[in-house]
Design a protein around this nucleic acid. Structure first.
Length: 193
DNA sequence: CGCCTTTGACCGGCGC
DNA sequence: GCGCCGGTCAAAGGCG
């Protein structure tokens, strides 16, 4: 368990909504090098993705849907191994767990996509075989430990590769702001059917 | 003053 | 065992 209470209402919306502000949207996981033991679902659309993420919210640990990879534990639980630590570093003392992970590409001039969540950058690294650094972000919500990585494609610098890892355990306020008037309108219209 | 980014150092995993 | 590499920490500085 990653520390979040998955018995209570599943996270609404999905861990990270598709970037609404970037066009055109590309989803071409097959063009990427999947990390480790990832399972890539080709030709995924966001409708199925949203369904998948809803499912992940209900039972993401036993049945990761999009991609999985060994990763540092998180989402609230501290999985640090407590033996003989010389320093207080967290990253090096987490045991591996499986966390849901998926990635997509967008063609955008901006590295940072407005996905409705608030992120804090905690690192940047130059990676091999790429002229562009990889940036590491963490969700700023205090109980949420979702991370994302952002990197431009070496072959096409206009494409940004974003990798999300983990499940948000809190609602996306921006998305709710958008959805609530829509839901109200749908309720209103449904009375005439 | 609080939050954020930047950046060098550190760590574990992995291949040889 | 060693070196490379990716991921993370945390101090320092910037900004509103």
């Amino acid at each position: 368990m990653d520390g979040q209470d998955i018995s209570t209402p599943p996270p609404l919306p999905p861990p990270s909504a598709p970037p609404l502000t970037t066009t055109p949207f590309l989803f071409t996981p097959s063009s990427l090098q999947p990390p480790l033991d990832t399972q890539v679902i080709p030709d995924i659309d966001w409708v199925s993705l949203l369904s998948a993420q809803a499912f992940l919210g209900a039972d993401h640990q036993s049945k990761p849907v999009i991609e999985t990879c060994p990763s540092m534990a998180g989402n609230g639980d501290d999985h640090r191994i407590e033996n003989g630590s010389k320093d207080k570093r967290k990253g090096s003392r987490f045991k591996k767990t499986i966390r849901p992970r998926f990635e997509f590409q967008t063609r955008s001039a901006d590295d940072i996509l407005d996905d409705g969540y608030k992120w804090r950058k905690y690192g940047q690294k130059a990676v091999k075989n790429s002229n562009y650094p990889r940036s590491y972000y963490r969700c700023t919500h205090h109980t949420c430990n979702v991370k994302k990585q952002v990197q431009r494609l070496a072959k096409d610098s206009s494409i940004v590769v974003t990798t999300y890892e983990g499940i948000h355990n809190h609602p996306c306020e921006k998305l709710m702001e958008t959805l609530i008037p829509l839901l109200n309108q749908m309720q209103f219209l449904s009375r005439f059917q």
